[in-house]
């Protein structure tokens, strides 16, 4: 067990190193930041001292020193959270990210939990009632949910829920008593709903496909022959074994869906989370901030994969742990 975890941890470090190195190479080769003068000019206009701006450029974007020195500076900078200065917000990148992430998490997290719980439940029902009316309804809805583009669905939801019915605000505002207030929850209903429907649909499809692998398994018939309830059969003998392959798609799928979805949703609803920050950074050519908002999802994905590897060992007792019992 320990050898297995050590191996996975080592791989996580290697993956991180590869990501960082590729990012550095891309920056080195990128023509976008080729003009040091333009960069320093922008920094000075944004209120930075000239020397500080020049030094920042050297450290961040490849001015001065050998390639090795620049590389080491880059890696050390990332590790010590010296991620540079955002020209868009005129603040250190780390501060911008620190303020923004909570706005993303506040609706991404509930949407994820709902998507996994509801999506798996729908998928399991579909699989155990294959070709029934309920299955056809669920499959059709899931297909629609996956096919609806978020940008269009978000606008329709604003139109219906915000404009016609007037039940929800049409855009997000930070002018609420607090993130845990009822008013904040109220304005997050539509974004969570839009993000959640796509995620539920996608999870339901995976859960149905994986559960179908098991509904006809011999051990399911054997479990039924013990006289346990159909619900116990479905949860203990279909969903539980299906959770092993489901865990493999879960992390990658959920992260991809949520980061991509969050981008669109934050821009449309005006939620000042990481997606909107990243969007503005790209429009402004704010390299340091773009770098941060792209690397963060990558690091989250790498960490997610590590969690997934650990989850495997708990979910499937047959996984070889890399050492003899």
């Amino acid at each position: 067990m320990r050898a297995y975890l050590a191996k996975r941890l080592l791989w996580t470090l290697v993956a991180t190193w590869i990501t960082v190195t590729i990012t550095f190479l891309l920056l080195e080769l990128s023509p976008v930041s080729a003009s040091e003068a333009a960069f320093i000019d922008r920094q000075v206009q944004a209120g930075m001292e000239y020397e500080a701006a020049a030094e920042l450029y050297d450290r961040q974007l490849g001015g001065g020193g050998t390639a090795t020195e620049r590389y080491l500076d880059f890696v050390v900078g990332l590790a010590t959270l010296e991620w540079g200065h955002s020209t868009t917000y005129n603040r250190p990148v780390v501060d911008v990210v620190a303020d923004a992430w909570v706005y993303s998490v506040q609706y991404v997290l509930p949407a994820t939990v709902v998507a996994v719980v509801v999506g798996f439940a729908i998928g399991l029902y579909s699989a155990t009632h294959q070709y029934s009316a309920g299955d056809y309804a669920a499959t059709t809805l899931a297909f629609v949910g996956v096919s609806l583009p978020n940008f269009w669905f978000a606008v329709i939801c604003i139109l219906v829920g915000g404009v016609w019915l007037g039940w929800f605000p049409t855009h997000y505002t930070t002018d609420v008593p607090g993130l845990l207030s009822l008013a904040n929850a109220h304005q997050l209903v539509l974004p969570t709903f839009v993000l959640g429907t796509a995620a539920i649909a996608s999870q339901a499809r995976y859960a149905r496909a994986e559960s179908l692998e098991y509904v006809r398994a011999d051990f399911v018939t054997a479990a039924r022959s013990k006289g346990i309830s159909e619900r116990a059969v479905a949860v203990r003998h279909v969903l539980r074994p299906a959770s092993v392959p489901l865990a493999t798609v879960l992390v990658g799928d959920v992260l991809g869906l949520l980061f991509a979805g969050a981008y669109v949703i934050e821009v449309i609803f005006g939620i000042p989370g990481l997606g909107l920050v990243s969007y503005r950074a790209i429009l402004q050519g704010d390299t340091s901030l773009v770098l941060a908002t792209t690397l963060i999802p990558v690091f989250v994905a790498i960490l997610g994969n590590l969690c997934q590897d650990v989850a495997y060992t708990l979910l499937d007792p047959r996984i070889e742990l890399g050492e003899g019992r």
């Binding site: 398994a217 011999d218 051990f219 018939t221 054997a222 479990a223 022959s225 013990k226 203990r236 003998h237 539980r240 074994p241 092993v244 979910l315 499937d316 007792p317 047959r318």
Partner: peptide, 16 residues
């Protein structure tokens, strides 16, 4: 009670 043909597939692999 039933006993099935293939014991390898009649037991659920994820439970003791």
């Amino acid at each position: 009670a039933h006993v099935f043909q293939d014991p390898a597939s009649a037991l659920n692999p994820v439970y003791t």
